[in-house]
Computed example of a mutant assay.
Amino acid sequence: MDGGKRDVLVVGGGVIGLTTAVVLAEDGHRVGLWTRDPLGRTTSAVAGALFWPYRIEPEAEVGAWLERSLSQYEQLARRPDETGVRIVPGLMTDTPMTDLGSWAARVPGLRQARGEELPAGFGQALRATVPLIDMPVHLRYLKERLRAAGGTVERRTVTGFEEPAELAPVVVDCTGIGARVLMADASLYPVRGQVVVVENPGIDEWFVASLPGSADMTYVMPQPYGVLLGGTATEHSWDLRPDPAEAEAIVARCARIHPALAGARVLEHRVGLRPARPRVRLEAETLPRGARLVHNYGHGGAGVTVAWGCARDAARLALDS
C-alpha cells in the first residue's frame, strides 16, 4: 500500500472484523485491520461455529444476513481443508419449523426428525445439513485472504477511535464485547460460554439442545481437531477461567447423548464471551473531525453465522458518502 495509507481501518480481529476487512479489500479498497489479541485468542476462535441463528436480533434483518452468509459458506465448503468450512448433518432439538425464517428454505433437506432419530428424552427436533466451521483454520484463512487482497493485519490496542481516524477517513468498529468500554455501550453485555474439547470416539454429526431460561446447553460439534462439547450461556459474567465443575457437567450432559464421550480424553478447555445486545449495532456516524465510523458489533452467539451478510452491509455503510 502506497505510503501505508488506508482507505479503511477495521478495528477488531474476530470473524466479524476479518470478514468485513476481506469484503472491503476485495472490493478494491486499501484496508488495514487492527486487532488487540492474536487471532487464535479472540472470542471467535472459541466458537462452536455451527451455522444457526442464536441470540441475535433484529429478526427482520437477520434473515437477509443469514441467506447471504449461507451462500458464502456453501462456496467455502468446497475447499474444507483450506477454509475450515464443512457441510455437516445434525439435530437441532425443540425448535419448530415455524420458528425459522425464510433462510431455512435454502437449507437442503431440512425436515422434522423421525422418532427413531431422537435421543431418549427428546420429543422433537429438526434434521438439517448446514455449515460447521473449524474456527482456528477459518480465521487463518480469512487473514491470508485479506493479505492476498492487499490488506494488512497489525496487533494494536486502542482506547478510542480517534487514533485510527487520524490514519484513515473510514473506521469500522468490529470490537465485539470491547465496544462496551470503547463506545460506553451499556446495552452490550457478555454471555459467557465454556466448552470442552475431547478426542472423537467416532461422532460425525452435530447435536444441539438448550433449555429455555437455563444457562446450561448441550451441544456436540465434531471438528477435525476433536469433538467440541458445550456448553454454557451465563449472562453478565466476565470470567474467562474454565470452571472444572462446569466442564464436568458439560461432558456429562453430552455423554447422555453419546455415551462414548464419557470416557473420551479431554484435550482442551475453552471460554469465550459472546457480545450480546438487544439488537446488532450496524450503523454509521461521523466523528468530530469528520471521519466516518461504522459500527458492526453485538452479534451475540451468531457472529460466525451472519458474518458475511453483516460484512456486506457494513462495507456499504463505510463507503456511502
Rank of each mutant, 00 (worst) to 15 (best):
V271Y: 07
L211P: 08
L261G: 02
M1G: 06
V46L: 12
V107C: 10
M217C: 06
L273N: 01
T19M: 11
T232G: 08
A149W: 01
S71G: 13
A125K: 05
A149Q: 00
E57S: 15
V62N: 00
G230V: 12
A120C: 00
L118V: 06
R36D: 14
S187E: 14
K143A: 11
A311S: 07
V15Q: 13
V62L: 02
N200I: 06
A245M: 09
V195Y: 04
I133F: 01
G303N: 02
A60N: 11
E163R: 12
V15H: 06
F207A: 08
D37C: 13
P212G: 04
A318F: 15
T286Q: 14
G101D: 03
G4H: 02
E162H: 12
A247K: 01
G303P: 01
R316A: 05
Y54A: 00
G231S: 11
Q124L: 07
V306I: 08
M1Q: 12
D239P: 07
G303Q: 09
G40A: 15
G151Q: 04
L228A: 06
V130G: 08
D320M: 14
H269R: 03
E116W: 14
D185L: 13
G160T: 01
D243A: 09
V227S: 00
V171K: 05
L50I: 12
V107F: 10
H138Y: 04
R78W: 07
D134W: 07
E26W: 07
L9Y: 01
G90I: 08
S102W: 04
R127K: 13
L18C: 09
C254I: 00
G12S: 03
A125R: 09
R127S: 04
R274C: 04
A318P: 07
V197P: 03
V196Y: 00
A307G: 14
F207P: 06
L126G: 14
T305C: 14
Q72L: 13
T232C: 11
F207T: 10
R277M: 06
E82L: 15
S71W: 10
A179K: 14
P201M: 11
G272M: 03
T98H: 10
G176D: 13
D216M: 08
R156C: 02
E116H: 11
A247Y: 00
D37E: 15
G3F: 04
T95L: 15
A128P: 02
P242V: 09
A209Y: 04
T43K: 10
V306K: 07
E205K: 05
D320A: 15
V280H: 04
P201L: 08
